[in-house]
Nucleic acid binder design. Structure first.
Length: 270
DNA sequence: TGGCTAACCCTAATAGCTAA
DNA sequence: TTAGCTATTAGGGTTAGCCA
């Protein structure tokens, strides 16, 4: 079944600048959309729609950091026909607005506002601790946070920075179902194709947290593989992330040239 | 003029279930 | 393993208002 998901991931990474529907992706791997949805989610942990959205917003981060295109043009490049929708989705996923991200990526903003201590929620809180086991060489602090999504996006409800592998603790975690994500910049690896810069990532979850309880778990942090959607959150010490053109080719496939034109052009020339 | 946000609405995506 | 049906949900488009 893995080849179905991998084929769809190839399609998403090569054609994210086109309008891609669930039907399109299912057709690309020649199964029904219902079966495709279930297989894709089982392999990658996220739905095709969320994976596609993550790839598009990740490319938008690269364009904001590397080009002088305005927000409207960038939203069109990554196949949003509405700048308002693009701005809303970008802010929700990255944690800061597109122009804020551009200022930070260009070093025009001293303070990094993306990860801030969340407002203390009412009621009893829980805590999580454990050990981060890192495969590879982290080149930045390891950021571990509790998120509401299997994709590293939005703002964590609790987070901690580590110098590297070792014990960690997240205190003041609100009750709920959370995904624990760990991210660090890593040395270049052969598997580095999911982002502009090599990342070491780890995910555990979902983990049920209740007030007043403590959860202990271990986390494996290793180079990204093809099943993982791009990291969208803007992290202190990690961004600007993308520096190489994307999409990157998957293993065993010939490289596909990155499109120079956006969705509107693709539509016009279809 | 460009960018951000919010409200409203519609549609595609999704999840749960069943069946071959 | 694969596919279809259906109810629900989330994402995206449009529009308007506000700000710099």
């Amino acid at each position: 079944m893995e080849h179905l998901a991998q084929g769809a991931v190839i399609t998403i990474r090569e054609r994210f600048y086109e309008p891609l529907s669930l039907d399109d992706l299912a057709r690309s791997v020649m199964v029904s959309k219902f079966y495709f949805l279930r297989v894709f989610r089982r392999i990658t942990g996220v739905t095709p729609g969320r994976f596609l959205s993550a790839v598009r917003l990740h490319e938008a981060k690269r364009l904001l950091a590397d080009t002088r295109l305005n927000v409207a043009d960038i939203s069109a490049q990554v196949c949003y026909s509405s700048t308002g929708t693009f701005s809303r989705r970008f802010t929700a996923s990255v944690g800061i607005s597109p122009t804020q991200y551009r200022r930070i990526a260009r070093g025009e903003c001293g303070e990094h506002p993306a990860v801030l201590p969340p407002a203390a929620p009412a009621g009893p809180l829980g805590s999580v601790s454990g050990t981060a086991h890192v495969t590879g060489t982290p080149l930045s602090p390891l950021c571990i946070g509790a998120f509401d999504s299997p994709v590293v996006q939005g703002r964590p409800v609790a987070w901690s920075m580590l110098d590297g592998a070792g014990p960690f603790a997240l205190n003041n975690v609100p009750p709920g179902l959370w995904y624990l994500h760990a991210v660090a910049l890593g040395a270049h690896t052969a598997d580095d194709f999911t982002s502009g810069r090599p990342l070491l990532v780890g995910t555990v979850g979902p983990v049920q947290i209740t007030g007043g309880t403590h959860v202990r778990l271990d986390m494996a942090v290793q180079p990204e593989d093809w099943t993982r959607p791009p990291v969208l959150l803007a992290l202190p010490g990690h961004d600007p992330l993308p520096r190489r053109p994307s999409p990157r080719p998957l293993p065993r496939r010939a490289a596909f040239p990155a499109p120079a034109l956006g969705c509107r052009h693709a539509l016009a020339t279809a």
